[in-house]
Amino acid sequence: MRATFAVLAKDLRLELRTFETLPAMVLFSLSTFVIFHFALGRSAVGGQLAAGILTVTLLFAALLGAGRLFVAEREQGGFDAFLLAPVDRTSLLAAKAAAMFLFLALLEVVAVPAFGVLLLGPALGPRLPGLIAVLALADLALAVIGTLVSAIAIHTRARDMISPIIGLPLLLPALIASARAAAPVFSVHGSGAPPGKWLLILALYDVVFALIAYAVFDFLLED
């Protein structure tokens, strides 16, 4: 835990100094909403379409952010520094996934209201708790898979390409589940509560891949 917090605090401090990741994710998301507006020729969307636009945008923004996750470690000796310390290797996974989760949550604090203003037809206000539940579970999936894929890709030659081509299919079940879960939230009719079945799938996905990532992460560090 100590090591996890040390790495997480260091990562957040680095982000505060450089502003390399989070602002890029926010700008990317806002641009993507504008692109969807023109590509679809719609001023307001709702239901499944709205859920799809939001989740796809967050997915791509997450992959963008994940690509930066280990760059400082790779280029400035962070991996060696961490490996020289007598700490559990998986604390790096935990810290990076936590950083990724925080970035996504902060991104959504800006991107979801912006989505509500720019594209969303139905009012969001009363249905926010349901959406937060969906996004929290989706962020967990994005953080875990994003960290794992980024750790795999960082030592490859074509890392900017390897990371998304592995990450996209791997995240597809999470995308399906979160898009389906968020659809009722954005619908004019119905209760607006996300269906429990999809939240369950999303939670199952989170748990399974968190455990797998925990089991295999060591092997990505040893040399």
């Binding site: 795999i152 030592h155 490859t156 592995i166 990532a213 089991a215 295999v216 092997f219």
Partner: peptide
């Protein structure tokens, strides 16, 4: 090693 990590994740 990396291919094995991938294979395990993808297999699951």
């Amino acid at each position: 090693r990396y291919a094995s990590v991938f294979a395990i994740v993808a297999g699951a």
